[in-house]
Design a protein around this nucleic acid. Structure first.
Lengths: 210, 210
DNA sequence: AATAAAAGTGAGTACTCACTCAAATTCATA
DNA sequence: TATGAATTTGAGTGAGTACTCACTTTTATT
């Protein structure tokens, strides 16, 4: 498994992946040619197929990176830390920490996430991997926290964990999507983000808290 | 403008559009060949290019149909009716009517909406059309209702219309997306829909109502 | 029935695509 | 430094692409 870690990839493999992530997310998987990836990554087209047997193999490589990010240090552990230290914090503050953390993160991994989300619509293999390795884990992890919060009478007993998580995820996703795609139309400014997050938290909180 | 109405299209044009909607939504725009569309629609490939000058023209045709649906009778007018008759109804009931209406509708137009949403990510032209003709109109229409409801002290004064609409749309979208893509994983049954909608309404209501 | 216009066809065109492979280059080891 | 192995290269390949156009068929008009 370790060899799938970004750090353990060699120079050219990294470059191919990075360039592929950029172009796939900008133009879409099918609209991107391996020739373009090769040129932008400054490798021969053959080199791509040495490392990733097929074009779909590049997509698989991106998926693996995304799963690694979500599995490892960056995501779940930071959230776990927030959860674990949450004994006496207000639920509102915990949520804010997670959201700020999550927004920064998703913003960083937005290109990868976009590719995987869209291709998961068309490709069973990607959809399956997304569900098994990211959604399922998120549900398990959040489930624990949810239960804990319910026992502390901070979240309503009648709200299911998956419903609550869906509410949170939906809000984060549309929030980010709106900022990425319709920044100009809604004339959103970057320094409104904090305020915007507060509004989202407020809506979520009213929805799920006691 | 009338000639863009689905009813006014001729037999073959309809068939091409219908088939294109089906295949585009299943495999994606770029993964679909005009040859396949021609075969499934039982027309010659040349016929496609007679009606839609380019492949992108087919996409444009789909966009126009979607805009028509959203502009005309089916969508806004049904919602308008709900709004107009809403004088003494509970906000909760109004929302439910809209959501049931909306879910049925989105379910019906899901393939078109999926194509347009995804291509709007990559193509400025589609994104612009989506914003100008659907999002903007939805905002205007909802804005009126929102204000009315605020004046009747049914929606909190500090909630902006676009934030509320975003909350509603996000919830509908993830709700439908989940059912379409992860039906089996979450073992969701069709007869749970009503109950599920009630939960969503409850969350939204707690978020925005006084 | 004759004629013209409109609609429809599908083989052909120029081009792009993912992928291959023989040869060139780089690297490791003695 | 010589030798063999591993890596990298990019021209080449065949399948497939969006789109065209000379032609045929259908429809409307007289």
């Amino acid at each position: 498994m370790d060899k799938y870690n970004y750090e353990n990839l060699n120079e050219k493999e990294k470059r191919i992946l990075d360039v592929a992530i950029k172009i796939f997310s900008e133009k879409g998987f099918n609209a991107t040619s391996t020739n373009e990836i090769a040129k932008k990554a400054k490798v021969a087209e053959g080199t791509i197929f040495r490392y990733f047997k097929t074009k779909k193999g590049i997509l698989r490589g991106i998926m693996i990176q995304l799963i690694n990010i979500f599995s490892d240090k960056l995501v779940f552990s930071s959230i776990e830390k927030i959860f674990k230290n949450s004994d006496d914090k207000d639920l509102r503050i915990i949520l804010k920490e997670i959201l700020v953390d999550r927004v920064n993160l998703v913003d960083k991994i937005f290109p990868m996430a976009r590719i995987v989300l869209i291709e998961s619509i068309y490709q069973e293999e990607i959809r399956e991997a997304l569900f098994e390795n990211i959604i399922k884990k998120a549900l398990e992890m959040y489930g624990e926290f949810h239960l804990e919060m319910q026992n502390k009478n901070k979240i309503r007993k009648e709200i299911d964990a998956d419903v609550a998580l869906r509410l949170i995820v939906a809000n984060i996703m549309i929030f980010i999507g709106q900022r990425k795609l319709y920044k100009d139309n809604f004339n959103l400014k970057d320094d409104d983000i904090e305020k915007d997050i507060d509004v989202i938290i407020d809506l979520i909180m009213r929805g799920i808290s006691c």
